[in-house]
Design a protein around this nucleic acid. Sequence first.
DNA 1: CAGTGGTCTAGACCACTGA
DNA 2: CAGTGGTCTAGACCACTGA
Lengths: 240, 240
Amino acid sequence: MSETALHERIRADIEGQILSGAVLPGGKIPSELELMEVYGCSRATVNKALSRLNDAGLVYRRRKVGTVVAKPANQSMVLDVPDLRTEIAQRGQTYRYHVVDRVIRSAARNNDEEKRLAGKGRLLFVKGVHIADDRPFAFEERLISLATVPTIVKADFTFEPPGSWLLEHIAWTEAENIIGATAASEECAACLAIPVDSSCLLVERRTWRGEEGITQVRQQFAAGSYNLIARFGPDQGKKQ
Amino acid sequence: MSETALHERIRADIEGQILSGAVLPGGKIPSELELMEVYGCSRATVNKALSRLNDAGLVYRRRKVGTVVAKPANQSMVLDVPDLRTEIAQRGQTYRYHVVDRVIRSAARNNDEEKRLAGKGRLLFVKGVHIADDRPFAFEERLISLATVPTIVKADFTFEPPGSWLLEHIAWTEAENIIGATAASEECAACLAIPVDSSCLLVERRTWRGEEGITQVRQQFAAGSYNLIARFGPDQGKKQ
DNA sequence: CAGTGGTCTAGACCACTGA
DNA sequence: CAGTGGTCTAGACCACTGA
């Protein structure tokens, strides 16, 4: 085995040709048979390289036609949505979560979204503040489906905030984030120690496991105190 | 060949066991040799299934140890960052871009970021407002590297806004978005027809082609008028 | 029909790493 | 040392699809 695998070298070669513009969108990549000769390897190896490029969306492949460079209509970026406790710890700050309110209740009768989340069970509502180095950092209101996550009623959130607890105990299969701005309500402003109506970053997230809703959460951050970062680049694909 | 490929069936089987919680994080997936017997297939086939799970971050694999279910630390979502003109058109609204200012200048001497973007060339600065159905929608300040994109000096932005022009004419390989909130400045408030200091969603984006900077842009949206949406789900991975 | 990719097999040698 | 994954080969049959 050489330093880097051959299939990886082939993949990088072709990716380079695409990104440098040497092969334009719509342009053809050599067929697997041709690449076998160029690299003096088996078809399985070039197939692996081309399949990865296909998975990454850089090319598409069709029988008889061959492998073609895709158009960069690809405007999707990768947004890391980290656990707040983890993120604050990584900054070297001390983390604390303060529970403002904690109630078990049924879904509101006039709220279809809550009813979908609750299913046939009840909801745990938790309101709290994330605190970094004794300064309030995020105001959070969260609903959790007890039908999906019954064991969370025993959790102690002064020890571990509900978001982190859920991450440790439940695998989600689907999530949606809506990111916007809002003006701080009186309660939010009091919790974050900022003036009423000042500008806040607002993140609303819903997560599911298959068809079952797990949680929905609304987080507010004082403007400038926190940003989300989304990236697109060639250094993707490294995990764990 | 059956309806779905065998490697895909194996992948889905194991994914199901992970997502349902039948195998917990840290739990072991059978070795390739064991799975060969279970599914009565060759090692290459189970390897392909397990490799895809590894790429997706659901498991990690180590020699001698085997394949282990990863902790769901995997909090990366896909954020679509669409072209504003396209997005407004898709909503069925009429789109217009109003140029507030347009200047060609050198990088500011005390601004390292501008100097990196400019390289050895000058910068095109464009300030403008995106308008949907005659209502101001976004306030935008943009710098474009003329070293990288010299032909943009001839573009008519009343016809096509600079962001859309760039999308049509330049392929980028890397992009970074910083998403936060801010309070509207006097100028921004005037352009968006909102009160000074009201809450705005702020998107700052930089794009590169290889090592060369293409553009950096700062867009502000009145709170509530626009949201970004990021998703994670099983319907990912379909491209083109 | 003929070219191209999709998938699979049976086997091989090797690298890494826990015991 | 022994088990496990990483990679590769040479070959096979098939499905799809443009000409």
